[in-house]
Design a protein around this nucleic acid. Sequence first.
DNA 1: CTTAGGG
DNA 2: CCCTAAG
Length: 757
Amino acid sequence: METAGALKSLPLHLRKSLPLKNELVCLSRPQIAFFSHNRMSISPLIQMVFVNGTESNQPICTGVRFSVICGWWHSSMERLVGAEGNAETNIEEITVEKASSSLSLTKRIADPVVYKLVRVEGDGRLVPATDDELMEVENLLEDDKGELPFVEEHRYPKGCISSDGFSSEKAGLESSEDMPGLSQTENMEVDARKLHARLEYIGEMLQKVKQEEKLRLSSESPDSSSNCMNVDRPSPDKHNQSPIRHDKPHAENPLLESDSLQLPKLNDPDTTQVASAEMCPELRGSVFGESSASDTPTTRKPDFFTIKGEICLDNLSIRELHETFRATFGRETSVKDKLWLKRRIAMGLTNSCDVSTASFIIKDKTLIRKKEKEVVSGLENSNTADGSLSRDEIVGATSDDHRDQITRLTEKSEDRQVLSGKRLRTSQTEYDAKNEVEADMKGEYLHMQQTGAKRVRKPTRRYIEELSEVETRECSGRSVSSFKNSDHGQPSLKSWARPVGTGSVDLAGTSVFTRQDSLEGPGFQIPHVSRVRRGRPRENFLPLMTYHSSGMTEKFAEKVVGVHASRQDGESGSNMRALTEQILQPTSTEAEKESLPGVTHTVEQQQDLEPEKLESSQDNSDENLTSVPTSKSGTRRKHHRAWTLGEVMKLVDGVSRYGAGRWSEIKRLAFASYTYRTSVDLKDKWRNLLRASLSQAPATDQGMKSSRKHASIPIPADILVRVRELAETQSQVAPERSSCKWAGHSKSVHESRSGYL
DNA sequence: CTTAGGG
DNA sequence: CCCTAAG
């Protein structure tokens, strides 16, 4: 249902939505598109689908399947996916024999291509990408936007990409620059015009939205909402074949869409108010003030829309931002993060990825940087007078340098403070840490010189103890909020309104949260949907989580469980850890639920190489349950994944080939296809195997191998034997490593050592 | 980041 | 599996 709707309503001009322009060659013919991107972090499940939005509501989806090959993005491009309006129906797959077949398709597809990011489910259904996925892609693309030339809307089928046509080599990427196409200037002019048109359009949209909101606030008349969005845009670019036009018919009734779409209620006043109130207190005024001043809803121009062509995103409420977003990109968003929205819109409007600023006033397609004007003047000046965008800005130098520069120089602006605050803070802490380390090292060095002893492994400090330390430090000190934000670039997160500990943690729930409140104040936040903006998706936001729960967990543990004192005691540690997990559990679950409505978000990547038939079934079965590599949802414990026989054999094989201890190599070479087995896992498993083989050594060839109660995989004796043999071999080859290792288990280390010496 | 080891 | 210390 939703899927179909989303697909149908696809007049989405998503091209603006994704800063793909640098990386994505988007042709009028749908068959050519590629991701010339040297990144691999996007889940292979994310695919680009080009949709030709015809007025007849019969979109034709043409998809390019992207896959990760050798860690590079590579469009395998062997097929198009055609879809009738209803995405529920099975999608017939049309194999395309490269360039020639395009003709038939092109006939039907004359309109500009718009595209939408979707996932293709296992059964072939197209599911609109979640905003998370979108963000993922965006973040990716933002990262190295500078690497590629701006290639846009070539008219040539030349780009028809064979799977090896654009290898992942950078040389391949650069070649895109040489692609025949529009001259850059021409291209940009066109683009500028489009932008202009869009801008005006958006202005009016916003007006309408405002009016509508007022109407809605004053009288809950339902028909007003349906009317008000009928925008009669005086298209200013009649001479221009702007794609906007094609968006128009669909954009006429966005409200209807918004109701039917999967997106969370835009109309929910609670959402809006809460969000605006909590995230940007300074904006409350605009929200409320506007509602009170709603007497002439007909023609009065909203405050924020001061001059034609100038939009101040800063003053917009979430809802308005949503509308703006939709007007800009032609699609909905459920993201409630204002900063994000503003950035995205700004990106779309300025056609630039460089919206590092935090003040979003868009004028004439350029971002007005409030306080940075002087500083970045060079950059600003590079914008040509006619509003076309300078290449520098688009393809600009390394974005990070740039950004940092800006950031450092402008720490005054209120808004920006968060952003720069983060940066400064990190660098500060880094600095501190470095110093500390240095001091540490010095101390240790001295110590070593004095004693001349070997470096001794410090007694492991369990993490739970560290947490308690953190807490005490926190109690005495301060700077809680800063820490909280330290890992997400976005200052304003969704605040966690509802109590987390609903179900399972009832006991703890109350005391826990009151306590937390007393520590942190009401702004207790949990980074449940937070995105790590840069870098690969991380799985360890555990530090964050544990941080949040640190205070409570420990106290709770002490009080309720009665584990007392003796932090060194292992049991206490594990208990608390269990508690931690228990408490954290509902949180992440909730988070998942919230941001992935209805879609089975299988994070597990679909392997190109099917691991092995032995475990393939098993893989599929618990694929959904397994780990949580997504950047959000955090790290729950990895779902225990039983080692299959095949894996064990592979491991043994790997050890025999590369030697025990070369876990990373084994992982790389033998376990490349098993994403879920880390080198550490291998090591652990080997250890266990070793142990098993030892314990069974005396009584080998018995049938007892399977008699283990919960041995998920009864390791065949022969394998164990082989393990033992291997172990011995290894020990001979590399004695110090393995001999001590397993000799130490049964015998005293001393003994084995002497034997070796 | 990788390895080793303890839990 | 998870976590940490040590290279």
